[in-house]
Nucleic acid binder design. Sequence first.
RNA 1: AGGGGAGUAGCUCAAUUGGCAGAGCAACGGCCUCCAAAUCCGUAGGUUCAGGGUUCGAUUCCUUGCUCCCCUGCCA
Length: 337
Amino acid sequence: MVPTQLSSKRKTVLSGVQPTGTLHIGNYIGALSVWVANQQSYRNLFMIANLHALTIPEAVKAESLRQKAREVAALYVACGIDPEQSVVFLQSDVPAHPYLAWILGCCIPLGWLERMTQYKSKASQADTVGSGLLNYPALQAADILAYRADFVPVGDDQNQHLEITRDVAQRFNHLFGEYFPLPETLNRSSGARIMGLDDPTVKMSKSLAEKHRNHAIMLLDKPNEIKRKIMSATTDSGSEVHIEDASPGVHNLLLLYETLSAQDRARVQAQFAGKGYGYLKKALVDVVVAVLQPIQSAYNDILADPQRLDDILQDGAAKANTIANKTLADVRRLVGV
RNA sequence: AGGGGAGUAGCUCAAUUGGCAGAGCAACGGCCUCCAAAUCCGUAGGUUCAGGGUUCGAUUCCUUGCUCCCCUGCCA
C-alpha cells in the first residue's frame, strides 16, 4: 500500500503552511522554489496546517478556510510540487495529529509554552486568548513527530518551536522509552530573505500583506498589479544603482532580480550599475511577470478540474495517515492506552 | 474572589439633556519624481465589545455576559 518512494531510505522532511493569507513571492523564493528543487533528495511531506489556523477563532470563516486550504494546495502543485513524488495533504485529514498532540502536550511543562515569543506576541495583540494558542507547539510537535521527520525547513521565527519539539521528543523518550528521532532544522542553501516592498526593514509576510496592499507581490497577482507594486517600492533619495552599498530597498530589488532571473551577481551588477532605480524596477517587473505566468497558468488548469485536486488531497491524506497511524499505534502502546 | 475604571475606523482618541458617529496618524489613489520619499490634492474606512431592556429615537440610560487595566483579598 505504501508507495515505494515512501519506504525508501531518503530522509523525511515535513513542511507546514497555514492556509491563511495568500502566498507571495517571498514564500516562493524563500521556501517553495527551494522545496521544488530538492524534491528528489528527500521524502517530502507538505502539510496544509488548517488546524493551526483555528488558534485565533475570531478570524476564522469556515467557507474561506475551506477554500484557502484548497487554494494553497493548488498553488503548491502549480509551483512544481509533484504529488506523485511528495505527499500533499490537509492536516485535518489526519486525526493522528491532534491525538498525538494531546499525549505530547501532557509531557510539556507550562513554562515552555509561556516562554514562546510567538505566543507572547500574539497573545498581547488578541483580545481573547484561547488555550489553543498556548498549546500550538504541542500540535506542531505532533505534526513533525507523527512522521518521525528528520528535517523541518523553518525560518528563524519558528526555531523556538522546533526546539520545543525536540525537547518534548526527548522528554517522551526519557519517560516512555527511546522512540522519536530528534528533528533538525533544514537550512536553505539559497538563504534568500525577501523583504517587504513598502518597508525593506521587515521580512515580507502574509499578515502585513493583508494590511498594506503594496507590501508583497502575491503569486496570483496580475501583471498590472505587479507593476504597480514594484514601481511603488521603497528606495532612497539616491539617483543611480550602486551595488556595493545599496540601501535596503534597492538591495531587496536587486536580490529579487538576481534570484528570479537566475543570474549571478556580477551579471546583475553589470546590467544595473549606474542606472536609475526606475530602470531596475521596470526590468524586475518583466522578470516577475515571466516567472509567475506559468505558475498562474498551471494554477488555473488545476482549478478547472476540481476532481483532480480532490484526488491529490485524498491520495495525500491516505499516505499521511498510513505513516502517522503507525506512529500513533507505537506511541499508544508505549504509554499504555 | 470582591471593589473601581475602561471597551467607538488598522492605531490614539472625540461626539453637548438621549437626536444624522467625527478628527489626527496609518492605509489606498492622483500630481510630482528615473523610481521611491516629502509636500499638495483626493478616496475609502464602522455590527460604537456581545445579548436583552427603557424610548418616537441609545455610542449615551438600565440589565446580563465577555475582555483588558488598577486596588484589595485569598493561595504559597
